[in-house]
Design a protein around this nucleic acid. Structure first.
Lengths: 229, 229
DNA sequence: ATGTGATACTGGTCCGACCAGTCTATGAGC
DNA sequence: GCTCATAGACTGGTCGGACCAGTATCACAT
């Protein structure tokens, strides 16, 4: 899995930006200087910079310096996984992420209540059963929970939402360690999933939504308690 | 506003992909051939391709062909504005977009009900007053509606949501013509906004959310009726 | 003090060579 | 006749060096 030269440089610069060594507004070293510093040809540096530009991380100006853009504003949500992975992100972001997840889960569950076929319900029930296994490891529960999420999203048939949720999922699974503690015994509670599925079966949208929102709220609380340590 | 050579090529290829002339899985012409076809140097083509790669639109393989990726899966939500702008998008996407917007609006309104300060409420009321102006042009209403959206989002203090909503906004405002008809007299109804604001003032979350969801649902219906013509 | 240039930067484009993977068609061996 | 290795003929990746085209800056003339 050998990275290409340009990739190496792009990743290196990306990391520098994500970690805050290069802050928004800062100027990157000139291409010629980067080429010398990395001991590669300027073309390779240029390709790396072009990629950063494609990612929305930098703004290139002919004749002037190449500068780092405001991360979320410039690059959009797509940078989030890397941002979380490479550290140096305001902890408040996690609260917002959990909020978003709760909103999505709640909405999906409500939609699912009116859209789910018996086969869909059976699928969800199978997932819940695995989630209820007292012998399951936290890591396994974590993945299963996201699978459950995906199943709900798929049920809504909303492709945009699917993309969005896969991004949220990506954030969580990029650094599983950060969130796995939410699935330890005594912290994680399948109750909400069970409630949600049974509400979906009986087409009770409100109850289904509330159950999943409660799940997300619980996760948020656990996460915040975790962080105080 | 002269585009750079690489930009021209990147945009051209992007358009070809967005419009479906190059479908996911298709191979791009080789760099050497593109260089000849556009009558530019291969370096410029490479930079363009690197940018496409940064956008997540293509997958480059050393030794093999460069292929078009699945749009939403590969590039994420960030491509959506271009996708909508350049046409050739499954009409169903608009339904999903309206759904998402309704979900976001509803959630924001609910949060706003418990978070809004008197100053915030006054701000929203000012917007509604403008929205209620019978002499306002549809284009103006359209922008005001998105401003209202933004105000709600800002109220929640959720930065991720702000980024997400700015993307949704971007989709709508990239091709305003497509949606402006939703704001014609007789179609657009301020009633929901008024209900939402007064519910927010009285901290009635449920009612506020329902009002904004109703707004989105109305817009969706009008959009679908529009499309049948 | 204030413009206004020359100049020394920045990135953009080109060329042509060569390296490094991948794909395929050809033909030797079975 | 079929299988499989292998030699090209592709693909993209890297190099270096030249030159074009914008920007920024600072010294100098006003």
């Amino acid at each position: 899995m050998s990275l290409t030269v340009a990739e190496r440089i792009a990743d290196s610069l990306k990391a520098a930006i994500m970690k805050g060594r290069l802050k928004p507004g800062d100027a990157l070293p000139s291409e010629r200087e980067l080429a010398e510093r990395y001991d590669v040809n300027r073309s390779s540096v240029r390709e790396a910079v072009k990629r950063l530009q494609g990612w929305g991380l930098v703004q290139v100006k002919h004749g002037g310096a190449t500068r780092v853009r405001d991360l979320l504003i410039g690059a959009g949500l797509n940078v989030l996984p890397s941002l979380v992975e490479l550290g140096n992100v305001d902890p408040g972001i996690f609260r917002e992420l959990h909020e978003l997840r709760g909103m999505l889960l709640g909405w999906c569950a409500e939609r699912a209540a009116s859209l789910a076929t018996p086969a869909d319900v059976a699928n969800l029930e199978a997932l819940v059963e695995k989630l209820a296994d007292p012998k399951a490891k936290p890591q396994a529960l974590q993945v299963l929970d996201y699978d459950f999420f995906d199943a709900l999203v798929a049920l809504t048939g909303n492709r945009l939402l699917a993309v969005f949720s896969s991004l949220v999922r990506d954030v969580y699974l990029r650094t599983p360690e950060r969130f796995v503690s939410l699935y330890r015994r005594g912290v994680f509670d399948v109750g909400n999933h069970e409630k949600a599925v049974s509400a979906i079966r009986s087409k009770n949208a409100r109850a289904a939504g509330d159950a999943m929102r409660a799940h997300a709220a619980t996760a948020l609380k656990a996460h915040e308690k975790e962080q105080q340590k």
